[in-house]
């Protein structure tokens, strides 16, 4: 049923790694699987600090992803 892609908003310099601010990946069922898929496709992400937010909440633990989930990747900013 979940054969669709998931849409991921990519913020900050993470978009330089993904090459796009609007990333599409094949559906995965939870945030741990998403992280693994991201690292497999973009090994450089393993070296940076970022949050996976699923439906506006940071995935501090593994959380379920549905086909309607809004997902974002956010790095910390330090500039002022």
């Amino acid at each position: 049923m979940n054969n669709t892609d998931i849409h991921i908003m990519v913020f900050g310099q993470l978009a330089e790694i993904t090459g796009t601010a609007n990333l599409r990946l094949p559906f995965v069922a939870d945030s741990d699987l998403l992280k693994a898929a991201l690292l497999a496709q973009f090994p450089a992400m393993g070296k940076v600090n970022f949050i996976i937010a699923v439906d506006k909440k940071p995935a501090t633990k593994n959380v379920t992803i549905s086909s309607e989930s809004v997902i974002a990747l956010l790095p910390p900013f330090s500039g002022g």
Binding site: S78, G79, G80
Partner: peptide
């Protein structure tokens, strides 16, 4: 809190209200 990088920025308020959070709850 406010921070910028290139074309993006972040704003938030920590340590206020009934439930107190801080930047380390995110990063």
């Amino acid at each position: 809190y406010g921070a910028v990088s290139q074309y993006e920025g972040q704003v938030s308020i920590f340590n206020s209200g009934e439930i107190r959070t801080n930047y380390r709850d995110l990063f």
